[in-house]
Design a protein around this nucleic acid. Sequence first.
DNA 1: GACTGTGAATACGTTCACAGCT
DNA 2: AGCTGTGAACGTATTCACAGTC
Lengths: 224, 224
Amino acid sequence: MTATSAAKRGIPDATVARLPGYLRALDGLVAQGVGSVSSEELATSSGVSSAKLRKDLSHLGSYGVRGVGYDVGHLRYQISRALGLTQDWPVAIIGMGNLGRALASYGGFAPQGFTVVAVLDRDPAVVGQRVGDLVVQPMEVLPSLTEGGQVAIGVIAAPAASSQDVADQLVAAGFSSILNFAPGVISVPDHVQVRKVDLATELQILAYHEQRRTSPGADLEVAR
Amino acid sequence: MTATSAAKRGIPDATVARLPGYLRALDGLVAQGVGSVSSEELATSSGVSSAKLRKDLSHLGSYGVRGVGYDVGHLRYQISRALGLTQDWPVAIIGMGNLGRALASYGGFAPQGFTVVAVLDRDPAVVGQRVGDLVVQPMEVLPSLTEGGQVAIGVIAAPAASSQDVADQLVAAGFSSILNFAPGVISVPDHVQVRKVDLATELQILAYHEQRRTSPGADLEVAR
DNA sequence: GACTGTGAATACGTTCACAGCT
DNA sequence: AGCTGTGAACGTATTCACAGTC
């Protein structure tokens, strides 16, 4: 219904959402040449409690050594494998406005196993322009991207008004995972995974807490 | 400890996170000239179940009418008020790389009650450049932004390597809410709210589900 | 008759605290 | 002695289902 349609016999959603954080912390340790960590140390560098970390890792298997800790390299590999990052995931970005360009140029995915293989826009004036190493392609190429059975993740960076339209085209082309940066809800068939990133929502959540700081008990008030 | 340090006698976190979605759906209805909605209709346009919607709204008060539904304008106002959006929130963005520029130029906040009032960068070569309507300022101006007691929300769009440094400067300048786009954890004092938006994390979560689709029961396997 | 608001039931997530292994 | 892995306890979120109101 909403976002994640419950995984049958898999890793709990809350845990999956934290695994990338552990992975990043482990990469930091690898870079520092650290070979082994305790749950306490790894938890601190990931910003969680050690009990939560251990529970999370216990869902992947028993990869620690009692009395010692976790082997950094091995744990890193196991988390990668659990997340499906032993393969590289090609990604297509739709919508080459400010945000789309920023995402396309941002080097942040590549090291994590994601490669932007195509950038598209429906505006003929934008098609053909260079963005980073790529040339903007028209929407018509979408179906060809999924042909090898490879590209499966689409990123919607189009304006809200056309996000449902883009989502429909992604689904029709055979994409099964969508990361949506456009505000608002998009509806897709059950078998398609959608995740949403929304700036305005995040700011509004911060505003709520910020406001509570200054006017504490403004809960029950004259309702008009 | 982690992110949200539990609200005393407030609206549940999960509810707060969904209110912006309801607000957006209500704005759509206002634009269509609709004056009244049922929980079922509003839930559908917000992508949640009607029971969840009603429970969420019940935390704000009783603003519906049994047998009828909710008055769109009044509910919109009540949610705005609960979120603290009856005032406008000035925002400062730190880091004018690709992402920072995209965020600064993105018009998406303004209608929601957020105004980007300052954009900063620590690189002297970037300081002075125009980004949208603003001129990039040096980091030194940070403390002056909070002087009127006004600017309280800072957006970190700097690279991961300097995100902790930027966070420290925001905290020192008196910011009490931070939206962090840089990968990795930042640590701040308890009274500072932090929310994180991380691309790579979202893609990794999608990859997990995507991988499960293709290789279903790859859970217990030879552990090396 | 229609639709809200909510207690009760259930599911999910986190924390505690300790048994079990090295 | 040190640290993991995990059952049991607790807390939070979601769903159900219906009493209450218009």
